[in-house]
Amino acid sequence: MTADSTSTLTEILVGGISRGAMYALVALGYTMVYGVLGMINFAHGEIFMIGMFACVYAIGAFSVAWGDHIMLNLTLGIMVAMIFSAAYGYANERIAYRRLRKAHVLAPLTSAIGISTFLQYFIFLTVSKDTVNFPRYYSDYLTNHHINLGSAEVTYLQLTILGLTLVIMTGLFYLINFTRLGIALRATAQDQLMASLVGIPVNRIIAFTFILGSALAAIAGVMFSMYNNVLVFDAGYRVGLKAFTAAILGGIGNIPGAVLGAMILGLTEALTTLNFGSQWDDPATFAVLMLVLMLRPRGLLGERVADKV
């Protein structure tokens, strides 16, 4: 292999992992809700999109209020995004899903698809019908600095995205498996009635799951819009679909599985672009999904801890 093609391959892998990491942050929300409730929250992609808009508009407001302090405004912007997304996520659960918890499995699923469409059009009609640029002044530092990996470059932003994903995954894994809250989560996942009988506040635990998942989606949204330079009202649909696929691929309900599935998806897309062209990204991705499901119907890591958080 020549030096040139090695560096291309490295760059492809870096790009694929970065994309996978963003899918992973969204996929974690899907998988957590499924783990606890056994339901697919299709509106999760829109929560991710709302996070992007909240952050960019908050940054705009802050820079008007007290000037362009990059670190301060960006940190506050991300926090506003998390609060907004968490509020929307909580409201979704409270309004659209809670009453349907004991209904047929198709009822909350349909409700989720409805909420997804509603939120997309809501943002479209009230916030922006067009693409909005992420303020480059705030992303330039992260996108223009890089470390060298062989002859390929890894930007600070890509490192940040990957780092955040790993930290959050580890944190969630710890939370679920080694804390009292985690025990409550797992108990709720196993049997809501029994959990409530032993004094676990099931409603609050479920609401917490939505709030946490939505706040993570907001972080993913901010990273995603920084990375892609623009944000648009329908961005959540596609990423949501990919993240959902990733969660299924890794074994839905399984935290490390969601990250593994997302990485495989990101890398599959990048390697497909390298070898066959990006027009084959989607066919290749879903071919991989079907192949994995044929061999392991519960996903890659699904079997061992299926139907748990």
């Binding site: 790009g15 994309r19 892609n228 330079n229 623009v230 329908d234 390298l274 062209g277 990006s278 990204d281």
Partner: peptide, 16 residues
């Protein structure tokens, strides 16, 4: 190459 109309991450194409 071609890319989907709602894709906005072109890193892989750029690497190629």
């Amino acid at each position: 190459q071609g890319i989907g109309k709602d894709d906005r991450d072109f890193r892989a194409n750029i690497a190629v």
